[in-house]
Design a protein around this nucleic acid. Structure first.
Lengths: 217, 217
DNA sequence: CCTGCTGTGTAACATTTGTCACTAACCCGC
DNA sequence: GCGGGTTAGTGACAAATGTTACACAGCAGG
């Protein structure tokens, strides 16, 4: 399954991705945490899973989904290097079940921080405490933006928002996406997405190709 | 505007509503915080506002809304005594603008905790630190449930969810709500709500009266 | 070059939700 | 008991989204 536990090199990874951490914190983490590799498309979390550690993304990218009982997906936001999964913190803290699912979109590395360490880190290291609060804050705001979108906006506006997001993440105007992928992420159907994308093409907002959407806005 | 700043009785209020706090923390808070009264329907927060303190609800009830540019509202969740507003914590911590609006649904009291105190409380008082994390966690989960609802569920299921929520909050099967209020909270229109409520009545799920909805499920 | 698979286009239709227009029922103060 | 305001019910229609069904284009492998 491509899972590798690495003990070496943790310190360097931490220094490069989490430069804001104080040196003693980095040492502490390097001492007690391991890095785990994930393949593209591998799940980092699934609904109903329990956590023994919280995850910091060191390399790659991770998509965070909400899933309902029937297996429908709904994409919420994406994490990159330097981000932490607020949910894994929350669940870890409470030893509770996860309500979401996370999937690596490319080969990724995550630092696993044992729950047992959390209290000590929180009270002993100011930069950790700020990091955790900032993580909560930004995930919360992302979630608010998600609510905004589905509560107030129509499908075409949401597609636009989605494409903008993808562009920012891939740092590329040409997106390698199928209509079906978008439909799944937005919990809609391919036909609807095709229809609306076509309209956007007519309005000159995108150029469509097989497996690619070029944003022109 | 019915705003009163009280300095007396803070300690008793804290003890009754936040019994989990350690005594030294209660003293600390009583020393540095004030209680503020809000009238029914008065706004505690509005979008674009800056915070100098974070708010703990001591008495009453507060509705948390998302608002869009056109002034549409979308109800997210409700706070009662013993709850804290995660957003006010987040914004306070970052001295940032609020993205939401909060309104008292009945005469309410809130404890105002100055931001300046946050660091000290967080690092010095374990029960405060747990309280803050638990606040983030539960708000985050409420927000996830909101996403769930609007992403996956149809209007009638959402109404059901809404009514269940209201019932839990008011601890009463008979809800004093107009269809228009529900429509506003759900960012829909009165006619739609009336229509669906009527269907629910035919299915025996509710009994409808003027200004009242009696839940039978 | 044929074949089969995946991705896309599109028409027709169903369903859900929103809007408009109007009526009726109820409630309160005079 | 009579207006006037608020709340609710309803039909007709519009718009958005979802569904079904099918055609077709591009590409990869034999």
């Amino acid at each position: 399954m491509g899972i590798t536990i690495q003990h070496s090199g943790v310190q360097q990874l931490l220094e490069s991705r989490f430069g804001q951490f104080e040196p003693e914190l980095i040492n502490k983490l390097a001492e007690h945490c391991v890095v785990r590799d994930f393949d593209a498309d591998q799940q980092l979390m699934r609904p109903g899973q329990y956590f023994k550690s919280t995850m910091l993304i060191v390399e790659g990218g991770v998509k965070i989904y909400r899933e309902d009982q029937d297996g429908n997906e709904f994409f919420m936001y994406q994490l990159g290097p330097g981000d932490a999964c607020a949910l894994s913190m929350i669940c870890a803290t409470r030893k509770e079940q996860s309500q979401i699912s996370a999937k690596a979109i490319e080969p990724s590395k995550a630092l696993l921080v044992p729950i047992a360490l959390m209290d000590e880190l929180m009270t002993g290291y100011k930069t950790w405490y700020y990091f955790v609060l900032e993580t909560y804050r930004s995930r919360f705001e992302e979630l608010l933006e998600v609510v905004d979108n589905i509560a107030f906006k129509s499908m075409d506006e949401r597609i636009e928002f989605y494409l903008k997001n993808q562009r920012k993440l891939s740092r590329n105007d040409e997106l390698a996406l199928t209509h079906q992928q978008i439909a799944t992420d937005m919990n809609s159907s391919r036909e609807v997405i095709s229809r609306l994308l076509k309209k956007m093409e007519q309005r000159g907002m995108v150029r469509l190709g097989r497996n690619t959407i070029t944003t022109l806005f």
